[in-house]
Design a protein around this nucleic acid. Structure first.
Lengths: 240, 240
DNA sequence: CCAAAAGTGTTTGATTTACACCCATGG
DNA sequence: CCATGGGTGTAAATCAAACACTTTTGG
């Protein structure tokens, strides 16, 4: 099988081996009290029928973030403005795709719980699944996507500890208890509601009170907040 | 100017735009009490005569770490075993190289202070320069290497805070004072020698005493240590 | 009024900081 | 014996965990 047919010819006459470049996405959300990841079922060879991460080829005149943003919108309907998007890592083992030499730039996206992937688009084939079974069977995922998924989850967990990233899983306005539920879902640990509340509200610039309250959790009305300007949390929520 | 002459033809008949893939290296060391970065002077267009980061094309059957390791050895004589090497980020703006579409995977390397780059090799053209002037004139660097360098330094600083990475700047055996000098060089801050000593020696598994002592710092002989097995430091050296 | 969740105050123990002090060497 | 840096002890200040207690809603 011909892996690729030639070399890229550039103007200075040097010859460089050609690569295809893709972006792959680890999209995480918190749903039903647990951390879930977005997967698609592959419809074509190789790995037809297997679960894979959403992603696709980078276009000739598109930068990497744009490609990731575009794929995210195409496959989930999530716009860049909600949630959070950051580069994760790049994967380039020569045999990671049996067809040809593909280097994949992986992105990590954190999104609030959405109604459902938008039907009638590519997103129809995509769905959120709890990460525990996915990680246990990571070898079943297409390509090296099991590794990419594990790396993305590890990154998300470690960044949540000492940054305001958890708010990316919440809707625009949220209560302290909703934010706490995110932390508890990500680690499985229980946190003391009272100390958690004090810690976050006493960090200046971390949360911005809207002045509105809600009773959607039951009980006494809770203050609604939006993300503040401070992104770093020092010391972190969980201590090792 | 022809940016590239064609498309990569793969066996399944799909056509994908061809990219060249390179690795670029941010190599840091502590020398003369300050953080320094390895740069080379470019000998060819584009950016001839400008300072650039060491790096080069990824070969057809080579993975990304191997390419980074190879370039590091070729340009500095540093072997993988000394120091530390990790992936930093990937840069893929369509116009970052005027010749063609190049995606560059950047690696961050931390190395102990070496005698000198090995002469008679590619390394002859490379040298360590203090990071302050380089960062001030980051716009002068070839391609987007100013951005890559800044990202690498930021990553190194933030990882040093809460991990054992600082030992990568030290020779195999080192004293607590030598390790403290690394932290002081990286941030410019002064740290209390006594509390610093207590903190590191009381973290189990962080440092391994060799039993040997040295008087190379003057004064009372200091215990020599090697890196321990524990990589994480919690809480970190510097508090925000 | 009761249950449920939000939010505050206070106690206790751990951690950090600052700095006094002793130790072991070279000159 | 003195200067130099290595290393230990300790008290005061700060911070975090645990939990009793008050507040404000819905039913």
């Amino acid at each position: 099988m011909t892996r690729y047919s030639g070399f890229v010819q550039v103007a200075d006459t040097a010859m460089h081996p050609p690569f295809a470049v893709t972006v792959d996405l680890v999209v995480l959300t918190v749903r039903d009290g647990c951390l879930q990841a977005l997967v698609v079922e592959r419809g074509a060879e190789p790995y037809s029928g297997r679960l894979a991460l959403p992603g696709g080829f980078v276009r000739p005149d598109e930068n990497l973030v744009s490609a990731a943003t575009r794929e995210l919108a195409e496959e989930t309907g999530i716009s860049r403005s909600a949630g959070h998007l950051e580069q994760l890592a790049t994967y380039g083992e020569p045999d990671r795709d049996p067809r040809m030499r593909v280097v994949s730039v992986a992105y990590l996206a954190l999104a609030p719980d959405l109604p459902e992937p938008v039907a009638g688009t590519d997103a129809a084939a995509s769905r959120f699944l709890p990460i525990e079974p996915l990680l246990r069977r990571r070898g079943q995922l297409a390509f090296d996507h099991g590794t990419i998924l594990a790396d993305g989850i590890e990154r998300a967990r470690s960044k949540l500890e000492y940054s305001a990233l958890a708010t990316a899983f919440c809707p625009k306005e949220f209560t302290v208890a909703e934010l706490r539920a995110v932390y508890e879902a990500v680690w499985g640990d229980e946190l003391d509601p009272r100390n958690f509340h004090r810690k976050l509200t006493s960090t200046p610039g971390f949360l911005t009170a809207t002045g509105e309250t809600t009773t959607r959790g039951g009980g006494r009305p809770a203050q609604l907040y939006t993300r503040g300007t401070t992104t770093l949390l020092n010391p972190p929520i969980l201590r090792g």
